[in-house]
């Protein structure tokens, strides 16, 4: 029943700006992100809670989380 109520999120990562520092993934409370190659990627979008902490701590203006 919780599944239907859960809010969905879309994560945009600008690969031209992302430098792959991994700060977003390290401090993500739900382990949603991971480093893939030299830039960040979404590991598990379903786990995202839209807290925006990845965006707030991204030094490179590279990640944004939108409500669906």
């Amino acid at each position: 029943m919780g599944e239907a109520a859960k809010k969905q999120w879309r994560i945009e990562i600008d690969a031209r700006r992302c430098k792959g520092c991994n700060i977003c993934a390290s401090f993500c409370p739900t382990d949603t992100l991971e480093l893939k190659g030299i830039t960040m990627d979404v590991k598990d979008i379903d786990s995202c809670i839209g807290c925006q902490l990845c965006d707030i701590r991204c030094p490179d203006f590279a990640i944004q989380v939108f409500p669906l």
Binding site: K19, G20, C21, N22, I23, I56, R57, C58, P59, D60, F61
Partner: peptide
């Protein structure tokens, strides 16, 4: 990569 300056600017 990882420099905090961008976080401060934001």
């Amino acid at each position: 990569a990882g420099c905090g300056h961008g976080i401060v600017l934001k």
